[in-house]
Structures are given as C-alpha cells and as structure tokens.
Amino acid sequence: MIQIHTRFLLPLAALLLAFLISLPLQAASWQQFAPVQAQIKGTPASEGLQLELPLVSEDGSAVPLSVRFTGSLAEGDQLESIRIFATANPNAEIIDFIFHDARSLADLSTRVRLNETQNVIALATSRNGRQWVAEREVRVTVSGCLMRSDEQADAGMQNPRIALPRRLQAGQPIEIRTLISHPMETGLRKAADGKLLPQNLIHNMVLELDQQPVFEARFYTGTSANPYVRLHLKTDQNAMARFRWTDQQKQQLEEAREISLR
C-alpha cells in the first residue's frame, strides 16, 4: 500500500507543483472587480491596450501612469474612451479619457493617487462597443526618507500650463502636455482638528479645436493634485486649441494655443 502511495504521490506532487508555478501570482482582478464589471459588455480583448506604471512607487500621491491603444479597430469604428480604475483606493475611479473625435489619439500619460499596493485597470471602449482591458500591479511603499507635506485644501484652480512642441507637422502626432495647480481635495482627508476637509475637485479638462470638442479628461479622487495630462493630437488643419478646466463649483479656467502646422 505504502509503495503504491509514494509511487503515485511523487508524480502527483510534481503535477501540483507545475500547476502552482503556472498560476499567475495574482489572478487578473478585473473579472472580480464590480466597478469595472459594471462597465463591461461581453468579453473584452486582453491585447491591444498598453498600461504602464512603475512596479514599485515610493510616493503614492503621484504615480506616473501611461496608457496607449495599440489594437486594431474595424473600419468606421473609433475609440470612445479609456477609463482607469484603482482596485484598492477608497473610490475606484482614477481618471477617464474621452475621445470626442478621431483627432485625439489614445496615447496618454497622467499622475495618479494610489493608497496602497494594488492593481490598476484600464478599460478602453469603442463606439461600436468593443472593449479592451489591461491591468498592472503597483507596489506602493512610502520610503522612510520620504515624508509628505500637506497641500492647501481650499485653493482654487491656478496657473494652467500648456506645452506644445516647437514644430507641428500636419498628419503627425503632436504631443501636448497640460498642467494646472489645484489640491484635488478628496473629501476623505481629515484636518488637524479631526474634521473632514470638504471635497474640492476639478471636474474635467476639455480640449476644443475651433470650438469643436476633441478630447476630454475627467478627474476623480484618484487623480493626483495638480492634474497633469499628456495627450496626442493628429490634425492636418491649423486651428485654435482651447483647453478648459471646470471645477466642481462650475468655475472655469481657459488657455488657448494656436496650432499652426508647417
């Protein structure tokens, strides 16, 4: 009996071991994460969306994030949005990128808040309802030599900044960087007296070319203070680009730049 046992057990153990090795360390969690599940219709593709975050971040208050669509779309279809979610923040939403027309490209960077070690999920949706998903784990450690300073909670929007390349070429992707000063107070943080600081967020940033909305970024509690968005445009016509930030109180701030191609 014992003999039979060991003879069977060894291959069995090897099998178990092989099974364990082949298991990914962390099962993909978008399948189990309700806020993402609520957005999913059908089966999203797992190839075609590239999400980049550092493996380890020493400052969870501003973790650099990039997302890029590399998949292919059917004739006539167009990407509608890329939404970014945090699986272990108090609120799931981090930021949404919305493509109002095809001149805005799905190649974006921003800075996000991550409360702790967790997975970050990106979900892209096309107008025809096709979807792509990508997921990355980020380990968040606050280095012993890094102490955070407190931002001013009640400040409004200030210092909108836009950077355009010096030479803009028709039909070539144009990299645009945008930044605005704002505390992005989450409404979850307590002041020294123990009271919650009221929520104070910028709602969105809309980019228009000659009055036509082209791109929009929607900000949430998961967006870092001083929202930063790096985006790409492709156009073959000169236009006036207007960047408009609107906060929760409906205050607006606008910056304009001439897009003049060579």
Binding site: D59, S61, A62, S143, C145, L146, M147, R148, S149, A225, N226
Partner: peptide, 12 residues
C-alpha cells in the same frame, strides 16, 4: 521632478 521630498517640512 518631484512634488514631495524627504524631510521636506524640516528642510523648508
């Protein structure tokens, strides 16, 4: 290239 740094409050 950062918004926060080590011992920031003490330094500033």
């Amino acid at each position: 290239a950062k918004d926060n740094f080590s011992k920031q409050g003490l330094f500033t």
